[in-house]
Simulated assay, not measured.
Amino acid sequence: MNPLKTVYIALGSNEGARFDFLQRAIEEIQQKTGDVRAVSGVYETPAMGFEGKPFLNSCIAVDSRFKPHKVLKQLLEIEKKMGRERKTGDRYQNRPIDLDILLVEDEVFTSKDLTVPHPEIQNRNFVLAPLADIASEVKHPHKKVKIKVLLESVDRTELKLIPEKLKLPKKFSFSGFNYIAVEGNIGAGKTSFATMVSQDFNAKLILERFKDNPFLPKFYEDKSRYAFPLEMSFLADRYQQLSDDLAQYDLFKDFVVSDYDVFKSLIFAKITLHEDEYSLYQKLFNLMYKELVKPDLYVYFYQNTERLLENIKKRGRDYEQNIEADYLANINRSYLSFIKSQPGLNVKIIDISNLDFVKRREDYLNLLSEITEK
C-alpha cells in the first residue's frame, strides 16, 4: 500500500454548464482518486491561446495513495466520462472539463506523459490564483519560493473571482464510535483497512505485533509442538498491548481502530490446541478478557478461501506459504460461530471476496458507507 500524498489538481471549464462541470469533476475525483480536502475559489479568465469562451478555473488538494501516473490515468478517464474529446496535435480547444496535476508534494520528475511540477504553473495567473487559495505557503519544488510569492509576480488584471463557491464532497463520519476492531481471516486485508481508516479519519491505530512472535514460524513447521506456546505468547502480548494502548487516551485522535480483537485468541486456540490445553487456556483467557475494554463496533471481513490463499501468496511471508485451505476455512467457521454466540456484540459482517479496497477506491468508499451506516 502506497503512503498518502497530497496532490494539487487544476480544474478548468469553458463549455456548457461550466460551474456544474467543476463540481461534478470534484465528486468524481473524490470517488476515484482520493479525499478532496480543500477547494479554492472559482476564477473566470479569457480563453488563452485560442478564440473561445471564458474559462472557470479552480484548484483542489487531494490526499491520495495512488502514484502520479495512476492519478493521471484516472483524471483522463474522468475527462472522457464528462464529454471531453482530446484531439491529437490540438493543444487549445473548448472543453467541458480540463484536469491537470500541478504538484505532488515536493516530488520532481519527468516522463513521456507527465511532468511534475507542471511546467507552466509560474506562468499562469488562472492556476496560481486558485492554487494560492489552498496552498499559499507551499514552495514550488524548482523555484524554491512559495506559491503566494509566484502569484505576486504575474498579471492579475483579467482574473475575476466569482461569488459562487464549490463544495467539498460529503465525508463519512465515525462519530459515536470510540473503539473499532477490524477482524478477519489470515490475508483478509484487515491491517490495510485499519491503517487506511486511521490515516483518513485521524484515528489512533493499534496493529497486532505478530511479526515479533518467535513461535509463529515454528508453529507453521510443527503445529502440534508449538501450538500452546504460540497461543499463550499471543494472548499475553495482545492483552498487554490492548491494556496499554486503550488506557492511554490520545487528545489528538478522534477514536481508536485496531486490526484485531483479543477474542481472536480464543478462536485460534480452539482450532490449534488439544482439548486439555484449550481448557487451561480458556480459564486464563476469561480472567484477562473481563479486564479489557470491548470494541463498540466489531467489523468482520469475510473472504473466501481461494482469495485468502491468493493474498497470502502475494504478500510473500515465507512461514505462511504452506497454510492449507482447510485451516483457513476452519478459521472462517470459528469466527462466524463466535459472532453468532455474542448477541450483545455490535457487529457488521462484510463479504469482501470480490473487493479490492486498496487498488479500487470505489470499493474502499463502499466499505466505509456500509460500516458507518447507522
Rank of each mutant, 00 (worst) to 15 (best):
T88A: 13
L131K: 11
S353E: 00
K359V: 00
E77R: 15
H140W: 06
E79C: 07
I9M: 12
P117E: 00
R91F: 14
P343A: 01
K340A: 09
V116E: 06
S111K: 10
D98M: 06
I60Y: 07
V104M: 12
L284H: 03
Q74D: 14
P3F: 07
V262R: 02
P68Q: 04
G16R: 08
V347W: 01
I349F: 05
P46Q: 09
A17I: 09
N330A: 15
D244E: 14
V257P: 03
E275C: 03
S136N: 13
L56G: 04
I331T: 10
K359A: 12
L11T: 09
S192N: 06
V127M: 11
L284D: 00
R95P: 00
I339E: 01
F268V: 02
L328I: 07
F357H: 03
H69T: 08
Y278M: 13
N311S: 14
T45P: 02
L103V: 04
L287G: 06
A194R: 05
M1D: 03
K81F: 14
H118L: 10
R225K: 15
S40Q: 05
E324Q: 15
I121S: 00
A247T: 15
R361A: 02
K314R: 12
G344M: 06
S153D: 10
N57W: 08
N354I: 04
S111E: 02
L56S: 06
K171R: 15
N354R: 14
K359P: 01
Q342H: 05
F177K: 15
Y260C: 04
E306Q: 14
N304P: 00
K32Y: 13
L367A: 09
T191K: 04
K374Y: 10
A38T: 10
T6E: 14
A203G: 04
Q282D: 03
R86Y: 08
K348T: 08
Y260P: 00
N202G: 09
D326V: 12
P46V: 07
V154K: 10
F193T: 03
D200C: 09
S192A: 13
Y8T: 05
L273P: 00
R37D: 12
I147Q: 03
S136E: 12
V145P: 00
S40V: 10
P54R: 12
G89T: 07
K5Q: 15
F263T: 08
D222R: 08
V262N: 06
L297H: 09
A135R: 08
V197H: 02
K167R: 15
